[in-house]
């Protein structure tokens, strides 16, 4: 920023961030409460965390969530990259724009609608609601995100790079593995992490398509909260918050590396 911030604007920023983060910190602080309520901090204790780690059911749910997130992110990254390549290679401008619009509609359409439509689809197709239905729907809503993260990198790539590789004897497969993929790898990583976070904190879609005996964290926390507040939810939320922070940090480092790599790629 060129201009120095006035004390007033600094204060404003501070207040805004405080308002945004206060509920989270409130939650985290009370996870260390030795008492049982959210309004009366009796003393510091790790009791709730101990209870959390003894709750095998909850731990299995955490594991489910992580597995679904990793798997769906991985698969949707592969499909999304292929999709982005296909959109990029579309010769006609109209086809390209149509495909891109169809992709974007999926991103902006409300989760509730996507969840409900998946529920109808799965019941009609006779797929049992559970792990696979959740995984499939997570893959489905992550693909458009990956496409959107990868496509700009492809657009940024000069088409002569591909010509040059062909010219030097590269087969189509060589061009893909030795030129295109290395060029768009930052976009692929970004897409993967976005898909990971989207899957991780999805509630609406999962809520619709999950069945008996299978649950993810967001759905579980929701049902726990409805039953009555127990502070091990706080402990769980605190851990989740920490994990999300970690993802953000990783994402930050990827984009940083991306910036360095991106320099001098193309002459403008």
């Amino acid at each position: 920023m060129d201009k120095k911030m006035t004390p007033l604007s600094k204060l404003f920023l501070l207040v805004i961030f405080f308002i945004l983060y206060a509920p989270i910190f409130f939650l985290v602080i009370f996870s260390f409460n030795s008492g049982e309520t959210m309004y009366d901090f009796k003393g510091f204790s790790l009791e709730w965390y101990r209870e959390l780690f003894q709750d095998t059911r909850l731990l299995i749910i955490v594991l489910n969530t992580v597995v679904v997130a990793l798997l769906s992110a991985l698969i949707s990254t592969i499909i999304g990259v292929l999709g982005a390549l296909a959109i990029h290679q579309a010769k006609k401008r109209q086809t390209k724009n149509t495909l891109l619009s169809l992709n974007n509609i999926l991103i902006v359409s409300p989760d509730v609608i996507i969840g409900a439509s998946f529920l109808i689809l799965f019941t009609m197709a006779g797929i049992k609601l559970g792990f696979y239905s959740v995984l499939l729907s997570h893959i489905a809503f992550s693909i458009p995100i990956v496409v959107l993260m990868v496509l700009p990198k492809l657009m940024e790539m000069s088409p002569t790079l591909i010509d040059a590789a062909r010219d030097l004897g590269a087969s189509r497969w060589n061009v893909l593995t030795k030129v295109i993929i290395p060029f768009i790898i930052p976009g692929i990583f970004a897409g993967f992490f976005m898909a990971l976070t989207y899957s991780f904190d999805d509630f609406a879609v999962t809520f619709f398509v999950t069945g008996n005996g299978f649950s993810t964290l967001s759905v579980e926390i929701y049902s726990l909260a409805r039953r009555g507040i127990s502070l091990n939810i706080n402990a769980l939320s605190a851990l989740l918050f920490l994990f999300t922070m970690l993802l953000v940090v990783i994402y930050y480092f990827i984009t940083q590396r991306n910036k360095v790599n991106g320099m001098g790629v193309r002459k403008h």
Partner: peptide, 27 residues
Amino acid sequence: ANKRQVNTVFQDYALFPHLNVYENVAF
């Protein structure tokens, strides 16, 4: 193009940004 005995020097050079000078030439 990959089966032809000709090589091209492009207007924008089209050097591979993810490879160093040596690997570009060795491609």
